[in-house]
Every structure is written in structure tokens, then in C-alpha cells.
């Protein structure tokens, strides 16, 4: 009986170690799986040809990803411009100014925002944001369907609020109370304390939070697919439609097997997306690891 228990323990140690190693390798497997599928297109075209030309005609064998990459960049940039000021101000308010009751009320609201499925964001975007943008464009004398860079940016901004707010509130709260007290006792106002003491101290963490939000916005698919308009050209203004990379992949899954190289091109797009998001995530994670190491 005794030996059986030891045997189970030893076996479990090896198996759990194996599972833990596998979870590291999983990422490599995913990257490799996508890369392998994108070899056919990379053999046909040069990397510059794929990434820097704008002609997208799969039937003729033209696969220029530039409009999609630009679409992703524009949409993400707009989302960040909206999301960053709102989220940072909110997280300062929640960690420095708000009382317990407001904090307790804010927590479920932010969790809720984080939990809403992206397809529901898409439906809401079509119902509310798209008509709003159409109306807004009308004020500037621009005609648009409303399905545009700006609509996608607004919806994305709301989707990444919770990520930036949660992380940066945590960063602000990890700053020792003594720093605040020292500043306040020297006669600084609360805002001065925030501006000159807390924000510089929290800066790396805030940047990590923003980068994490950025990578989430960059890879978001369904909501963007539903409101961005999906026209394969580099958008010229906020009210132009865009066709971001994830939307391209999701929109063409049905026909990709019937056109030569199409599936390879789309999985190549997924590989690029993975690469970009990984770079963002690794940067953000390394900054955060540094912070925890310094505070310990």
C-alpha cells in the first residue's frame, strides 16, 4: 500500500512536469503550425511583396497585405487615442480620489465590460456607434455609411478600457502610502502629488498596461469585423472604411480553400498577427516583471 502511494506520487510528478513543459511548447507549436502553412505563399512571393504592396486580388494571385496592415494600425491608433486618456484618468480617480463605495460600485461595472462577448460589442456598435458616426460625419459635410475607422476605434476603445483600467489601478495602488504622505506634508495638493510623484513612479506600469491594451485592440476580430466596413484600401480619413488584418482572416474562411494559395495567404496573415501581438505582450510582461522585482 505504501509503495503504491509513492509510485502514484512519483508518476504524478513526472506527468505534471510534462504538462507544464507542454504548456510552454504549445506556443511554439502554434507559431510553427501557422508558419508551416504560410510557406507556400512565402515561396511564391517575397516578404516585401506581401507586406508592402496594396493589390489584393486572390483570383489573380495578388496578395498585398498593406491595406490590411494599415487598416489595423489606423483602427488601433484611434482606439488608443480614445482609450488611454479615459482609462488613465479613471484609474487615477479610482485609486486616489474615490471613496470605498464608489470603488465597490466600479469594480463590477468594469468586470462586466470585460466580460461582454465581442460579438455583442459588434451588435451594439452597429446599433449605436455606426449611426452616431454617420451623424457626426454629416456635421462635417462628409458622406459615410458609418462603418468606418472611427466606429471601429470607438468600439475597440470601450473593449480595452477594462484591461488598461484594472492594470493601472493595480499599479497606482502598489505605490507605498509614504510617498503620498511625504508629498502632501510638503504642502502639495492632491493633484500635484499625482502629477509629480505618483505618475512618474507608475509610468513603466502604465506603459505596460497601455501596450497590453494595444495588443488586445490589434487582435480583436469579431467586433471590428462588424463595424469597420471591410473595404480593402488604406483608409484616408477617420470616416473611411478600413479592413483590419483579423477581419480579413475571419471574413474569408469560407472561400479560402477554393482559390490556390488563398489559405496560405490567410494563415500567413494570422502568423503576422501572432508575431506582432507576441512582441507587444512580451514587452508589456517584461516591464511588469521588472516592476514586481523592484518592489519586492
Amino acid at each position: 500500500m505504501f509503495e503504491k502511494r509513492i509510485f502514484i506520487d512519483r508518476t504524478a510528478e513526472k506527468l505534471t512536469f510534462l504538462m507544464a513543459s507542454l504548456s510552454c511548447i504549445l506556443l511554439v507549436i502554434i507559431a510553427w503550425g501557422l508558419l508551416k502553412r504560410s510557406f507556400p505563399i512565402m515561396e511564391e512571393k517575397s516578404l516585401a511583396d506581401l507586406l508592402l504592396t496594396s493589390s489584393w486580388k486572390p483570383l489573380k494571385g495578388n496578395f498585398g497585405f498593406l491595406p490590411f496592415i494599415m487598416g489595423s494600425l489606423y483602427v488601433t491608433a484611434v482606439a488608443m487615442m480614445i482609450a488611454v486618456p479615459f482609462s488613465i484618468l479613471t484609474s487615477i480617480y479610482l485609486s486616489e480620489y474615490a471613496g470605498r463605495r464608489i470603488k465597490n460600485a466600479a469594480e463590477p461595472v468594469i468586470d462586466l465590460l470585460a466580460g461582454i462577448p465581442s460579438v455583442v460589442y459588434g451588435v451594439w456598435g452597429i446599433l449605436t456607434v455606426v449611426p452616431f458616426v454617420k451623424y457626426l460625419a454629416g456635421l462635417f459635410g462628409v458622406f459615410t455609411t458609418g462603418y468606418s475607422v472611427l466606429s471601429a476605434g470607438i468600439v475597440l476603445a470601450i473593449m480595452i478600457f477594462p484591461i488598461i483600467i484594472n492594470l493601472s489601478t493595480e499599479i497606482f495602488q502598489s505605490i507605498p502610502l509614504e510617498l503620498r504622505n511625504a508629498s502632501l506634508s510638503l504642502g502639495a495638493t492632491k493633484w500635484q502629488t499625482v502629477k509629480f510623484v505618483l505618475i512618474p513612479k507608475a509610468m513603466p506600469g502604465i506603459i505596460a498596461a497601455i501596450v497590453l491594451g494595444l495588443s488586445r485592440a490589434f487582435g480583436e476580430t469579431m467586433a471590428v469585423l462588424m463595424v469597420a466596413g471591410n473595404v480593402a484600401q488604406t483608409p484616408g480619413s477617420l470616416f473611411d472604411p478600413a479592413y483590419p488584418l483579423p477581419a480579413l482572416i475571419a471574413n474569408n474562411y469560407g472561400e479560402m480553400l477554393s482559390i490556390p494559395l488563398y489559405d496560405s495567404a490567410l494563415l500567413f496573415a494570422a502568423f503576422i498577427l501572432l508575431g506582432i501581438v507576441l512582441v507587444f505582450n512580451i514587452i508589456s510582461k517584461i516591464i511588469l516583471l521588472r516592476i514586481t522585482r523592484n518592489t519586492q
Binding site: 504548456s23 503550425g33 489559405d263 494570422a270 498577427l273 501581438v277
Partner: peptide, 29 residues
């Protein structure tokens, strides 16, 4: 090793779901 596993898991949780979908699709092929 444990720090490494945590690092990988944290990075993986940021990968967009469309990439997992595309990976599943390539497995399918």
C-alpha cells in the same frame, strides 16, 4: 522553470482568438 511557464502562459493569454482559430484550422488541414 516555473517562472518560464508563467511567462509563457501570460504571453499566451494575450494571443487573439482568431489566431487560435487559424491554428485549429491549420491542424484541420
Amino acid at each position: 522553470f516555473v517562472s518560464l511557464v508563467r511567462f509563457f502562459l501570460d504571453i499566451m493569454s494575450g494571443i487573439p482568438s482568431i489566431v487560435y482559430g487559424a491554428f485549429g484550422f491549420s491542424i484541420m488541414l
